[in-house]
């Protein structure tokens, strides 16, 4: 050590806090910069759905169980907005980086695979929750939304957003072009989120669909989330929580494994 004035490499401990914070900041800044597309547009679309379904199916008197249809519908639509936007955020972030080639800037720095996974997921969760919050506030202007169990609302929102962020991350790593991602969105995410009890109580559908709904994680998000608002559930909350925790764990491991082995992202 003859030249003591030479710059020392920064020591990274068990957690690269600066790297993690920078990645999270980038993920959030990325969507906030185009907030018209990432926040305002989904809110408008969701409110449109609300208006359309309320007009066509609601009537003023229609009830689902003891709950007015308009109150029943609102949490489902908010949850749909949360999940679709969490998915859109991570999937587009990774895929755009891949297509434009700047994913290398994420892979080269000393950031561990789990830190990358976490940063992407946090970005997706923040976008999902922001869209959900704005949508819920807008709906609350028209229809009073009770808050029966706020803890359930937060828990299910974070769990669902996390799950879809992970799914988007995995999809983004797997997809080679935008067509692949559009196919996943059109043929997997949208059908699952629409046919999951957003618009109806699954107790009123034919037995086959009732059974299929219980295999669909979206059903548990929406059911538990709705329970948080109106205190009425179509399924079993405990099963739902177990399904969500389990699915999240499996997806997190898969995403972490993909990022650490560089599947489809390192040549």
């Amino acid at each position: 050590m003859s030249q003591t004035s030479s710059p020392m490499p920064r020591q990274v401990g068990a957690v690269n806090w600066i790297g993690l914070a920078t990645m999270i900041r980038r993920e959030i800044h990325r969507f906030l910069k185009v907030w018209v597309q990432t926040i305002a547009a989904p809110v408008v679309t969701t409110l449109l759905f609300y208006a359309v379904f309320a007009l066509a199916l609601g009537g003023v008197v229609r009830m689902v169980g003891d709950i007015p249809f308009l109150q029943f519908l609102a949490p489902g639509l908010v949850m749909m907005a949360i999940t679709q936007n969490a998915f859109a955020n991570t999937s587009s972030s990774v895929l755009v980086s891949k297509v434009q080639g700047n994913i290398v800037d994420v892979l080269m720095p000393p950031i561990a695979a789990w830190e990358l996974t976490l940063a992407y997921v946090v970005g997706g969760i923040v976008r999902g929750l922001l869209v959900g919050l704005v949508t819920a506030l807008a709906i609350a202007v028209v229809v009073p939304l009770p808050l029966a169990h706020p803890g359930y609302i937060l828990f299910h929102a974070v769990m669902a957003a996390g799950l879809l962020s992970l799914l988007g991350l995995i999809g983004g790593i797997w997809a080679d072009k935008f067509d692949h991602m559009a196919a996943v969105t059109n043929f997997v995410v949208t059908p699952l989120s629409f046919l999951s009890g957003t618009f109806y109580s699954i107790n009123s559908v034919p037995p086959l669909f009732h059974f299929l709904a219980h295999l669909n994680p979206f059903f548990y998000f929406i059911d538990g989330f709705r329970y948080g608002f109106i205190g009425q559930t179509d399924g079993t909350l405990g099963t739902g929580i177990a399904v969500m925790l389990g699915t999240n764990a499996v997806l997190a491991l898969t995403a972490w494994r993909m990022l650490s082995t560089g599947y489809k992202i390192k040549a």
Partner: peptide
């Protein structure tokens, strides 16, 4: 994308209305 995606989407809307009728 022109043929399959709109048909799937329309079927989903239809199913939502069908079940939503309660």
């Amino acid at each position: 994308m022109v043929v399959v995606a709109p048909a799937v989407m329309a079927m989903i809307y239809f199913a939502c209305f069908l079940f939503g009728l309660g």
